[in-house]
Every structure is written in structure tokens, then in C-alpha cells.
Amino acid sequence: MLRLPEFTLTRPESLDAALALLKEHGDAALPIAGGTDLVPNMKHGLFEPKMVVSLADVPELHGVEETADGGLRIGAMTTLASLAVHESVQRYPVLAQAASLIAGPQLREVGTLGGNVMLDTRCQWYNQTYFWRKALGYCLKKDGTECHVVKGGKKCVAAASNDTAPALMSLGAVLELAGPEGAREVTIDEFYVADGIVNRDVRQGELLVAVRIPAPAAGHRSAYGKLRTRGSIDFPLLGVACSFDLDAAGVIANADLVVTALQARPTRARKAIALLEGADTSGEGFEAVIAAVAAAARKQCHPLPNIPGDHEYRREMVPVYVTRTLRAALDEGGPVHHI
């Protein structure tokens, strides 16, 4: 069987206790939520902690509640399965849909939102066994010096592959973090950085406590689109989160469009968003707007041959999935998924 490194497992029962353990053991410790990403990665020798700190019994990380301002605060330990069906989450279709399409059903029972936000980036040269990576001579992200995706590249461009990240970005989510230096908040936008080695602005010993999403506007519309080979299990080959508010006259405001599984950070399709902003969905010209939005997204989005499969095909799918996801949001449908 694939072996895990030998480690000690601890189960702190409060946030403070968890933070203290992480502080005490520094680099040698890693938090584990559902373990659905960390365990396979450890089995591939990608992480070799001496201590694994379970967050299962940390009460501060659990629970979903509506906030005073009508928004939502989701504890990091909320499972993906419960997130997908939680009543309050249905107000944010893009998030419920993204969660419902992650991996397969058993995995969603234990995989958490926190673990998903904190997911390691993925690459065909990296998510492989120890033997395989050693035969390759490793790569820049772990144990090696070369990038096999970008020849001569000095920077890892492994793909952000977490489905909830673009959804949360499109909803303007804020992350509540707690660390040895105390608590801090950061918008999820600032949190993700364009570095495939660690694409999160997370500090030593820090934990994600909860994710806060502002209240949806009355005319909030959103949807998620996911390209993958199979109808289940697979990570995204492309993920598109689309969110906007629609006024009574059918005019779009606060539009957002975030595309993922391209490079290390989910990409906000700025030009496309600008075209959407203020567009009249009831008007004659809206078809042309959609086409322009799709074209602008395609121009900006450059999938790299980081994850398996044909990256040129992924690029071709950008406008198709952007168009379909946009339409789904407008029709209060979705998710956009081939099944």
C-alpha cells in the first residue's frame, strides 16, 4: 500500500490549544481537517509532518450561521456535503453548486470548506508518487530545481484546483484567520497569490477559522461551471464562477467572473467583467455582450499544461463555459456540468 510518514496525531479541543500545538511544533506540524487532500499528498511523499493536528474537535471551527448584516459565516470545518445542501448556502448558488461538484460523494462527507480553501495547487509533475517524482528528478515545487511546465521557468505555475475558491472570490468572501500573532481577516482575493508552491498568503501556524460572505443583494444571481472528464471524482480542468446582481429592469451590477484551474491563482476576468457591468440583459444587444464577454475571458485566460490533459482544449473551453455559466446564472440554473 501507499505509506504515510510516521507522525503523531493530536486532537486539541479548542482553537487556542490547536494554535499552541502548531506554534510549538512549527514546520513539523500540519493541521488536518477532512484529510482528503492532505492524506493522499502525504502518501505521495509531498508532506512529511512529524505531527498532525486534527481540527475535528475544535468547536470554534464548526457551524454555519447567518450574520447580523444578513451575510453568512461558515466554519472552516463545515463539510462539503453539508455546505452543498445547507439552506442558507442556497442563497449563493455559485457556492452550493461548486461544493456539490467537488470530487465524489464519500469525499464530500468528510472534506471541508476550510480544507478546500487551503487546498494545495496541482500539477501532473507533482501529484505523483515518490517513485515517479524521483524517476523524473523532481521539480521546482518539491525537492527539485526545474519546472517541467514552463521550460526554464523560475516560478511554479501549478494550478489552483479548489472549486470553492473562485466561487468565494466571486462572492467577495472574507477569511477569518487565527495565528500565533492573533486573529486577522483578509479578503479571499488578497489571500490567493500567483505562486504555485504555496498560493495562499498563510503564515506559519495560522488556521482558517471561518469564511464570511456578505449578504446577497435582492437580485443576486450566480452559478458555477466545471469542466472535467468524468461526471464525478475529477478535479476541475476548468472552473468558472459567475456572480452579479440583476435589478428590476434586468440590468447587471456588481458583476464578477472568476476562472480557475488555469494557473496558480484563480483568475478574475477583468475585461469580461467590465463588459458585463451595466449590461441590459433584456435588451437586443445582450447576445453580443455575452459573445464579447466570452471573447474577453478567452483572451485573458491561459491554461498551462500543468494539470493533465490537453491545455489547448481547456483554453478553447473558456469562452464556452463562461457563456454557459453566465446564462445559467441569469436563468437561475446551473451548475454547468456535462452531466
Binding site: I32, K43, S54, V110
Partner: peptide, 9 residues
């Protein structure tokens, strides 16, 4: 609930 025991400590 169904869970994958190979990746569950």
C-alpha cells in the same frame, strides 16, 4: 454516511 477509509486516519 459513506466515507473513504483509505484516506481516513
Amino acid at each position: 454516511r459513506p466515507v473513504l477509509s483509505c484516506i481516513h486516519l
